[in-house]
Design a protein around this nucleic acid. Structure first.
Lengths: 322, 322
DNA sequence: CATCGTCGCTGACAAAAGTCAATTCCGACA
DNA sequence: TGTCGGAATTGACTTTTGTCAGCGACGATG
């Protein structure tokens, strides 16, 4: 909590440079150190969140598509990442936008729930450091096998580290082999408390997964490709925090879900700000399911995806109104 | 609300430079403009709050004095501006610290009450620009005569401008010549609504005034120096949002207060974050009165003032405990 | 239709910031 | 006490950024 002596000088340099607008050599003179040291301290200050530089994300909210999506799906806020002509991949930009948006949505003292996935992990990776105080980051779902690289606990911890926040991990597997065991584990006080605390979050961050053999739950061995196809045939439309949802965004009634340890969808829905980030164009159906179930309030998508969402909704509504 | 075409390019440049970390010449190439233009756009982005650079104020909370003040007076957070050896005036630093702290305390969607005074005005002046959305800044008290330079409406408007927020002014004089007139005006729907809305604020910003001939209420002609002395003899210990308070921080029962149009102290106390900023060393007694009355939860003071507050409290408590 | 004033943009130069190898400092350990 | 290893600091050099006069486009005005 308290600033160590070695950090004090960094704070001072940052204050004089960024708040008072002195030049590096002036700061150096004031603090009786070399200008090179000042440059170094300032870099450190930026890297650790002592100094915070954030760019408005209005560029991405200010888009007809974003407005339409807000209206049509009743969302609080939508960010659309445009297709840049000369630029690189539009999808690659999504995590960067999402990370900025995410930081803007966090307030001091907040409790934040974080699920897992490649998108979330990439976001954590490009997220800038911030010096929020009294923020807690909680893991929304159990863990996967060790050799996997986007583990839920890693996502949680990395985001906590970037925000200078407290990370609350959750040491249970995401999927167990039998239902009674899962039930037993869910009733363990440590686990139960953490799952119950999800409803108290101010903000949640997650993506949505596809129901096919590319899904993380398949890749990490929790389900076989065949199981996955069977689930799909039984109505699974997407994966949220490791759980199968149907096309209405409700928890699918299936053996797999009963063996999962994760935050329940009701708790997630009761979180005021539920931020969903989707970078892959293949996730149209899962995303529609999540939207149908009211699982998200804040959405970050690519422009192509935004267009497809709107088209789908239009063709969906017309038959009904006729 | 929507970004104008001319601003779009500024947003893009800022995004590429600050979020993606490209160099100015790379940004220039991407956007097909000269590097000089990029430099210009970036400056504009910083000046208008499209890009936000903020420095942690931990340096000022991390002080034994600050901790002691928090404990002793039961405050949520205290910032102490130290006496720098070589540096300039410690008091001159107070508004800069306060402005940074203030920005940190504001959240999106907040309603903020602002009182008036030289300190508040100076804060507004050094406050950086930010791009908060849906923030409303409301004026806490009526206005003073026109020729005055730190008018309440100016403080409110300037802060609203810096935050890109909506300013809610309040067109009534601070002091009227008769009590019935004041009562009538307070009951005007426009005025009544605004006064009632003060209790809904998330954050308030004010300073405290002295009860002597240097006070703004005297300088702007609302009270004569003799009136002021009389009020002091009757127990006035400080001025909050234009109203006289006694040493316990309660509204003084006096003719003057009955003629004032301002937010009532109860409403102010019900605001969760009440930030008080004191730069002058002469304001010890008024500050003690405000603290006694629970009128502030967040405090910014100089180190000398912090020491005096603590000494005073110690000598005050000892007789009681014996 | 010419002229003027304004505004936005750029090229070229000056100023400031970033970088890194060399050096100093400091504590641990023989 | 000496000396060794690693971290912190710095001087000198390079790269990047800030600035501003000057140019051209555009719209208003006589």
């Amino acid at each position: 909590m308290a600033i160590r002596a070695s950090e004090q000088i960094i704070h001072k340099a940052a204050w004089l440079y960024y708040t008072h607008g002195l030049r590096q050599d002036e700061v150096a003179r004031q603090l009786n150190i070399s200008r090179a040291s000042v440059a170094m301290y300032l870099k450190k200050a930026r890297d650790t969140g002592i100094v915070n530089i954030s760019t408005s994300t209005q560029l991405f909210t200010d888009d007809v598509l974003a407005r339409q999506l807000e209206d049509v799906f009743g969302l609080s806020a939508v960010w659309v990442v445009p297709q840049e002509r000369h630029a690189i991949d539009p999808a690659a930009e999504v995590p960067a936008v999402a990370a900025s948006v995410f930081i803007e949505l966090v307030n001091r003292g907040d409790r934040i729930g974080v699920a897992w996935g490649r998108t979330v992990y990439t976001m954590a990776d490009v997220m800038s450091f911030a010096d929020l105080q009294d923020v807690t980051v909680v893991q929304l779902c159990g863990n996967l096998g060790a050799p996997y690289s986007y583990r839920p606990d890693q996502c949680t911890m990395e985001i906590a580290r970037r925000l200078n926040a407290k990370g609350l991990n959750f040491y249970a597997p995401l999927v167990l082999s039998s239902e009674p065991l899962a039930q037993g584990l869910r009733n363990e006080p440590v686990i139960r408390e953490q799952l119950a605390s999800v409803a108290d979050c101010d903000l949640a961050l997650f993506s949505v997964g596809t129901v096919d053999e590319d899904s993380h739950v398949v890749k990490c061995g929790a389900l076989s490709p065949d199981d996955m196809h069977a689930l799909r045939d039984n109505g699974a439309a997407g994966v949220i925090a490791g759980q199968m949802i149907d096309a209405k965004g409700e928890l699918l009634d299936c053996d797999y879900n009963r063996r999962v340890i994760s935050a329940d969808l009701g708790s997630i829905r009761s979180i005021p700000k539920r931020m969903m980030v989707v970078q892959e164009d293949s996730k149209l159906d899962p995303l529609l399911a999540a939207l149908a179930g009211g699982l998200c309030s804040h959405l970050v998508v690519t422009a192509p995806m935004a267009k497809r969402l709107l088209e789908h909704r239009k063709s969906d509504l017309r038959p009904l109104s006729q």
